[in-house]
């Protein structure tokens, strides 16, 4: 419940306030979003499997975002930023699909 409220508040703030992302942060924005969505799906799956823990969710959310951003940063420094972004996104997307499949199995038994 608080998650949905938080999401709505975030979207509302974003639309009303229109924050400008600093240019150096821009390449990490999509990666951070995908990583955060991965964490959200993981948390949702944990809820369905009745082993959800707030602390783990918070830590995994933050570490996911940070590690994904760091990988992209590292890739940029090594000159393979675009490929690294693609790789990170692919891996995160695979995890999201796996989590979605687990959630689906529990929810609909299918």
């Amino acid at each position: 419940m608080i998650a949905i409220i938080g999401l709505l508040v975030g979207i509302a703030v974003g639309i009303i306030w229109h924050p400008v992302v600093p240019i150096w942060l821009e390449p990490y924005l999509p990666i951070a979003i995908v990583a955060a969505i991965d964490a959200v799906f993981g948390g949702f799956r944990a809820i369905m499997e009745r082993r959800f823990d707030e602390r783990i969710f918070v830590v995994s959310f933050l570490s996911n975002v940070l590690i994904a951003s760091f990988l992209v940063f590292l890739g940029d420094q090594l000159g393979v930023g675009a490929q690294m972004s693609t790789g990170v996104v692919v891996v995160l997307a695979m995890r999201i699909f796996a989590n979605a499949a687990a959630i689906r199995r529990i929810l609909f038994r299918a």
Binding site: G6, G14, V21, A36, V58
Partner: peptide, 14 residues
């Protein structure tokens, strides 16, 4: 957790 979702919503909107 709510704060994290605020951040997520903000990121997506931005």
């Amino acid at each position: 957790i709510g704060l994290l979702f605020v951040v997520l919503g903000l990121l997506v909107t931005v």
